[in-house]
Design a protein around this nucleic acid. Structure first.
Lengths: 189, 189
DNA sequence: GATCGATTCGGAGACAATCTCCACTTTGCA
DNA sequence: TGCAAAGTGGAGATTGTCTCCGAATCGATC
């Protein structure tokens, strides 16, 4: 999927610079304030180069998103390996809120991209979704969590947390959503 | 708020036509596929007229959104008047899923607008938020619902449901989110 | 029902962002 | 070292957004 074309050295270099610059902007939440051509200037390449590597703004965003998701999945896997299932799930979800809180700009950018029908991030999200599904499945096997709700519902709740980034009481509400989800997930007697 | 200027007859007529046309497009989920100028042509007015009434795409969207919110708030109020608090809340939330399911295009459009930092819909959402807050507060007074989570969390969950409109198993997952929220809201022993 | 000032209309065109195209440069293999 | 393939960069075409203002419409008044 990534290894199809052994990119030439200079091309690879430019590509990396573009992604690095984009990640920076992304995190600052200014991803949509910038003319797309400006990414090229900021990275010190021509607009043609930018467009060859990333045909659309969304394509560039997805490249950035990839790294983000990979890190989160790693974390999920580590937690699952070291904690009881129910605790791993809870820790992961709480940690997601921390992560989003620490990267508001990123959350805002991602929310905007998600909302677009483009589905540019759908593929990248699959890995994250799989990680959450695994965490929930393990907790179900342990009997700590009911088995009649789909793990996708947890994804949806996370989605809501990320999407509602600009609510004044965001942090408290986000924590409450996690609380509701976790309590709701306990097999209702 | 609405009664400040007694609009001239022709102006009012054009305004209404524009909103009606926009609602149609909105519902079809094509709100962002259309050149903004085209709204004018579709409604049979000039672009100048369109821009005078609605300076931005978001302003037009908000006008449409207003009606939507008003209808939902009415429903909330009616439920609250005729059912026990806990049941009213549950019915309202389940109904929201039905409503969104029946208006996917609208949900998608709203999600996109919400995600924008513009906050164009923030004001319109206040009424809806108030309605939800009231429903929850009543349920808390009844003792049917815990008092240590903010009603805003419920809004966030709803937001997630609306924002995740394009998931394949959307309907099932949306129902599950509501289940989790409602079960989570029951005072945990 | 004719007059007139105020309001609204409408679309031509200025402006701004996106994206394409291709002459030139760089790379790395033989 | 030479050369074909791969990559570069920016000028300018294209497309969508928004402004401006002369013409048309309204409705209050006589």
């Amino acid at each position: 999927m990534t290894a199809a074309k052994p990119l030439r050295a200079d091309a690879q270099r430019n590509r990396d610079v573009l992604i690095a610059k984009a990640r920076e902007i992304f995190d600052a939440g200014e991803f949509f304030d910038l003319r797309f051509d400006d990414f090229a200037r900021l990275a010190g390449v021509g607009t043609g180069t930018l467009y060859r590597h990333f045909p659309t703004r969304e394509a560039l965003a997805e490249a950035v998103y990839h790294g983000e998701v990979a890190a989160l999945c790693d974390r999920a896997r580590r937690l699952q390996a070291t904690l009881p299932a129910a605790e791993a799930l809870a820790t992961f979800l709480r940690g997601m809120v921390d992560h989003i809180a620490a990267h508001k700009g990123l959350a805002r950018t991602l929310a905007t991209l998600m909302a677009d029908r483009s589905g540019a991030l759908a593929e990248g999200s699959l890995a994250l979704e799989q990680a959450v599904t695994d965490l929930v499945a393990a907790a179900v096997r342990d009997g700590a969590v009911r088995d009649d709700v789909d793990a996708g519902a947890v994804m949806m709740a996370l989605h809501g947390i990320g999407a509602a980034h600009d609510r004044p009481a965001w942090r408290a509400e986000a924590d409450d959503v996690i609380t509701l989800v976790l309590d709701g997930l306990r097999r209702p007697l």
